[in-house]
């Protein structure tokens, strides 16, 4: 992960939490707003949560303690070391909470054409899926979708925004205990 990407990934956690809430507005899911996510570099302990942290196995636990998005370099779908670190935690969490099913959503920045970016988003989602499967998450629990450049996390037209918008989000679609 480049320096810039690491920086934005940290900010992305907060943004992602807000955006996810918005995206889920139509569904009967509720989750408290996350105000102060830990830095991305800090190793989380999803299976041994802090006593006062989110409820283990909850959506909030996944978002805060694990991280639901990984980020990509321009035009790339290869996983960066930072992305792998997040996905390692996702895989451990998903091995603990076996009933949870996920949808991996691939996204691209706006500096490409619509159809090509749909294909690029699909590649990113597939890269994340393949990695999670290699870490023991059953392929039957995973679906993938590409939103191309249609669902930006950050609406601005800056390098920073584009870095945030090149991502794959792991959405928990069913099987949460609460």
């Amino acid at each position: 992960m480049t320096f810039a990407a690491r920086k934005y990934a940290t900010r992305a956690l907060a943004l992602a939490a807000v955006a996810s809430l918005a995206a889920c507005a139509g569904k009967p899911k509720t989750a408290p707003v996350v105000t102060t996510p830990p830095p991305a570099a800090q190793p989380a302990q999803p299976t041994q949560p802090q006593a006062r942290g989110p409820v283990p196995g909850s959506l909030e636990d996944f978002r805060v303690s694990v991280g639901e998005r990984v980020f990509f370099d321009t035009d790339q779908y290869a996983l960066t070391p930072g992305a792998r670190a997040t996905l390692d935690k996702q895989a451990a969490w998903l091995r603990t909470y076996q009933s949870v099913r996920i949808r991996i959503e691939g996204n691209a920045d706006e500096r490409g054409t619509r159809e090509y970016n749909l294909a690029l988003g699909a590649r990113r989602a597939a890269a994340v899926k393949d990695y999670l499967v290699s870490l023991g998450v059953s392929t039957t629990r995973i679906e993938t979708v590409s939103y191309g450049k249609e669902r930006p996390l950050d609406p601005r037209t800056t390098e920073e925004a584009w870095a945030l918008n090149r991502n794959a989000r792991t959405a928990l679609v069913s099987g949460l205990s609460s």
Binding site: Y77, E115, L118, A119, A122, R123, R124, A125, A126, A127, K129, D130, T144, S146
Partner: peptide, 9 residues
């Protein structure tokens, strides 16, 4: 049309 399977289009 384009069909995507396993990330490849």
């Amino acid at each position: 049309l384009t069909l995507e399977q396993g990330g490849n289009s």
